[in-house]
Each structure stands twice: as C-alpha cells, then as structure tokens.
C-alpha cells in the first residue's frame, strides 16, 4: 500500500515538473463555427512558423461572446458584433477585430432547372410562415421560367446561438417591419416556423435531406456541399448571386472606427445583401489575470499576422479577404491595445 501511495506521489511530482516545462506561450480561443475552417488553417501555419500554439474551438458565436466575458478564453470568435449593452457586461473594454468577410446564402432542396430568384418579401414571407407552398404566386411571379412544385416549404433554421442567425435576422429586421416588431435580431430568436439544425453543418444537412426544404447557411458550407443557392434582390433592385466578389463589394460602405457594423442590405449596387464580417473579440488592456508582457506582445503579433499576411488563406477557403480600408482600421485598433496602459506595438 505504501508503495502505491509513494508511486502516486512520485507521479504527481512528475506532473508538476512536466507542468513547469510546458510553459511555452499558447492561446485559447472559442466561438464562431463559420470562421473555423479559416482559423484552423491559419493557426496550423502559424504554429509551423513560430511554434506558438493557438487552440480554437468552434462552439458558436454566442458561446464565443460569453466565454470572453467570463475571461476563460484569450479571444472570442463571433460573426455577430456585440451591442453596447452586451459589452457593458464585460469586466473591461472589449475590441472587435475583423478577420474576414462572409455571406449567408439561401439554399433549398427542389427538383428544378435553373436557379431560384428571391426577393426580400419572399424570404420574410416564408420565415414568418405566410408563404407555405413553393408554387405560391408571390414566388411564381418572380420565377416565371421555373416549374415550381406544389410542395410544402420546410423551413430550416439554426438551433444554437449563432452569428449566422444574427446576420440573417439582422437582414430580415431591415427588410420586414413585421419581423422587426415581432421577432427582432439576435444570435438565437423564437422562430415562428421551422425546424432547427445544430451549426451550419446541421442546417446544410437537413436542407440536403428534406425535399422542399429552405434554409440559410454560410457560403462555404453551401458551396462545399454542392448545394444550390438563390439569387437575391438587393436594395438597388438587382438580383445578385453570392460570390466572393459580390460579398467584398457589399462592404464598400463607410465603416466606423470600431468596425461594429452590419453589412446586410447595404447601399452597394452590386453587393450581395446578406453579408457580414467575422470578428475576434479581445480585451484592449492585455494585463489581466497575470498575463505576461511577452504573452501580450505575442498575442498582438498573432492578430497582426492574421489580418495581414494571413489573409492569403481566405480565398482558397472561400472567404472574402478584408478590404484595404478595413485593414487600415484594424491597424488603428491593434495600436490601441495596451499593456499597463502603454501601447503594445507602435
């Protein structure tokens, strides 16, 4: 028995010893599932380059916001920007740092030739439960060439708190007064109709499998699964197909210094109307909970790399890179990050 206790004790010592050795710099992030393929690529490359380990777990944008407020992660990932009220719950000032642009696309499961054309009124009508059949006149009149079946529309939405939902409901709130009044914009809302899928992949899976289904997912999930996407009429009256280019164009608006802006239904003539940014959420003052200065420096360097050299990994993975104007804003934000009140980089 003594021997067992002794060996247990030795093992514990060994662990503590191993512990002190494993003190190299590493970061923990969590949040947005949309940004996950991009981040996992970036952090893998960054580890090979610098040896710094960045652990990113895709648990949803809502979770990313919650965990950075609880300060149990080094950064949160979110496709939804936080409101002033939400930010006031954090123990210190939070910064939003955009890393890429994305689009929410409308995808469907219909046996038709050609691509579906959609107007804001049709999407709002379907998600409010007012348009129930695919051969409804409101859809038919926009798509005279398509042979739309008399099938029920099976509405699919997200079951978890998600930035994708935030972007989508933000769009619906802008184009439909009814939606804005009764449901509103959030990472998760009380859906009037439909069934829920977990994560972008869950929604994509349901739409793929259920005949007559209609759902919203991030661009990369639709294109990597070869799912059809609808043309959308933007505020200029133009029908736009979701592509990297039309998303980038949508961001051609005046973006505020803290980058907290909605990119849905923008006034850009060729822009795709349901676009959005994905952000890193970090604390402006990096000296908290015993963080070292070296760690703070390495952290800012990491973000600098992601928003500059690292941007070359966006396009191969079907994200739109940050426009030059946004990168300039990012530079300012990074320069405003401090350690003990002093800027970390100049």
């Amino acid at each position: 028995m003594k021997r067992v206790l002794k060996s247990i004790f030795m093992l514990a010592l060994l662990l503590i010893y191993a512990n002190s050795y494993a003190r190299s710099i590493s970061f923990l992030g969590a949040g947005s599932t949309f940004a996950y393929p991009l981040y996992s690529k970036m952090f893998d490359v960054y580890h090979d380059m610098t040896g710094i380990k960045v652990n990113y777990q895709a648990i949803g944008s809502g979770a990313g916001q919650r965990q950075i407020i609880a300060r149990v992660v080094d950064f949160g990932g979110s496709d939804a920007f936080m409101s002033d009220a939400q930010m006031s719950k954090a123990p210190a000032k939070l910064l939003h740092i955009p890393t890429a642009l994305g689009a929410v696309v409308m995808t469907y499961n219909l046996n038709i030739k050609g691509k579906l054309r959609l107007t804001p009124a049709i999407i709002a009508g379907i998600y409010l439960g007012k348009i129930k059949k695919w051969n409804d006149n409101r859809i038919k009149s926009i798509n005279p060439n398509l042979n739309l079946p008399a099938e029920n529309i099976v509405v699919v939405h997200r079951s978890d708190g998600s930035g994708t939902t935030f972007i989508f409901t933000d769009y619906l709130s802008k184009i439909s007064k009814d939606w804005k009044r009764n449901i509103g914009r959030n990472t998760s809302v009380a859906w009037p109709v439909g069934i829920g899928g977990k994560g972008n992949s869950g929604v994509a899976g349901l739409v793929k499998q259920i005949p007559g289904a209609f759902g919203y997912v991030e661009l990369i999930y639709a294109s990597s699964n070869n799912m059809p996407m609808g043309y959308l009429r933007n505020s200029y009256g133009k029908f736009v197909y979701p592509t990297l280019a039309s998303v980038t164009v949508a961001a051609n608006i005046k973006i505020p210094a803290d980058t907290r802006v909605s990119l849905t239904d923008t006034a850009s003539p060729n822009g795709y109307p349901i676009a959005g940014m994905t952000w890193l959420l970090v604390y402006q003052e990096q000296h908290y909970l015993g963080r070292s200065k070296a760690k703070a420096k390495a952290f800012v360097k990491l973000i600098w790399w992601m928003t500059h050299a690292g941007q070359k990994y966006t396009k191969p993975l079907e994200y739109s890179p940050l426009p030059k104007s946004v990168v300039r804003l990012v530079d300012n934000i990074l320069q405003s990050m401090t350690y003990d009140g002093k800027p970390i980089i100049r």
Binding site: L15, A18, N19, R23, D44, K53, Y221
Partner: peptide, 25 residues
C-alpha cells in the same frame, strides 16, 4: 488541436474528438 502536458490548459480526448469530427460537415 495540439499536444498538451500542462494541467491548467485545455486538452483533447478521444470521445470529444469523435463528437466534434462526427458532427462536422
């Protein structure tokens, strides 16, 4: 996604990995 020997840092496990990979697209 990395190896970790530090008891104060997150760590992966086989069941967690199965869950994350199985529900991925």
């Amino acid at each position: 996604p990395f190896m970790n020997l530090n008891i104060t840092k997150p760590v992966n496990s086989l069941p967690l990995l199965i869950f994350n990979y199985a529900t991925s697209p």
